[in-house]
Design a binder for these strands. Sequence first.
DNA 1: AAGTTCCGTACAGAAATCTGTATGGCTATA
DNA 2: TATAGCCATACAGATTTCTGTACGGAACTT
Lengths: 222, 222
Amino acid sequence: MFTKVLVAEDYEIANQGIIKVLTEKIGIQNIQEAKYCDDAYLKFRKAYNDGQSFELLITDLSFRKDHNIQTRTSGIQLLQDIRIIDPLIKVIVYSQEDRVDKINQLFQKYQINGYVCKGQRAVKELVNCISGVYQGVTIFPPELTDNQSANNMIQLDDLDMVLLEELALGLTKKEIRVRLQEQSITPNSESYIDKRVSKLFDNFKAKNTTHLVAIVKDLGLL
Amino acid sequence: MFTKVLVAEDYEIANQGIIKVLTEKIGIQNIQEAKYCDDAYLKFRKAYNDGQSFELLITDLSFRKDHNIQTRTSGIQLLQDIRIIDPLIKVIVYSQEDRVDKINQLFQKYQINGYVCKGQRAVKELVNCISGVYQGVTIFPPELTDNQSANNMIQLDDLDMVLLEELALGLTKKEIRVRLQEQSITPNSESYIDKRVSKLFDNFKAKNTTHLVAIVKDLGLL
DNA sequence: AAGTTCCGTACAGAAATCTGTATGGCTATA
DNA sequence: TATAGCCATACAGATTTCTGTACGGAACTT
């Protein structure tokens, strides 16, 4: 089993909870915790340089900005930076995020080794995940393997996101058109913008722009 | 110090974290945990009926709906139900919520004894909170006592909230009017609805309805 | 080469939004 | 009792949204 683990999680209580599970349920003794991304990075680098590298990183995704200056505020940044030092480090993400496409992205784009969603069964999932990752297996969370939820995904391209953002800012179609032209983003005709937004209405079963933005905000896409 | 405590928190890891703090930092031995509101309620009632009542409830605000049938899904409901059994029970809420007015409401409307915000200093805050509450003091979180954040609050009444909700559902002013009339909510004229919404525009510096809903969603008011 | 299907644009009309003005009722206060 | 201020409503006009139709071009199929 892993003998040396780094836990990066800014919520102190959750931090303590993870450590409790690691020590009591798995028997890992050498655990270090970090409440800030930068802190985690420095601890990792120091251990690596001392030839006593961590074998596993368990990290949250989002870190609150605090009075402390934080150059790295997201777990993704942290894992990228740490992979530069040690490309073979195993990484498990432990986060609130339960959106299927976002979790998927973590595996595909950032090649994490496991994901555990904060939730009612997180202890068991975490234990399974760690032992699976130790054996070299990539551990997908139930959220992903339950194909029930994997279906109702809607693919949004860059233009869709731009439109949603500007609508949420209260811009009119005309204003959006002008903006797109200024940034030389094509297509940018008013009628096409209308079409695209209407398509989004269909996708999200929205009655109008306001409803659409509300739905997308609720889904956490914006 | 408290000798018997009930922890209601659906996130297992956080649950474990709280227990770790209670045992190791405060030395409370008799702790029971519950991952569901209903479960917490039953445990509390049983202990009370057995004449071995809990002295303190630490509860989260929001509980995820799960496959299990949950009649109580919010911590507020839980604390109300428990106060019916034992009006003197001390209650500390431990939650992600950091909106000043929502926390304020917990103290004023539901008379909780303490609040701890999930965060980077939650361990210390929790320890302080518990010892303060034990001494009979109401412990407000730093979020409330820092008057810096207490200023920029906007008071929304019931009608405002109803309007915001219905707008977010994509209803037109006409439809909203009809709804209000059906529920005999007054005032309900279309023009007054217009006026109220325009006032909300001013309050939140919104350009239009879509922008307004986006802002309110971001603030977590909806 | 002809047909089909998207993609991007243009236009048009009904509905809805947004803003401003006007009016009557209620309350408070001088 | 007169005045002022707020609440609730009504109406009106400019702007915007939303929906549908139409048209040309590019890509792809047969």
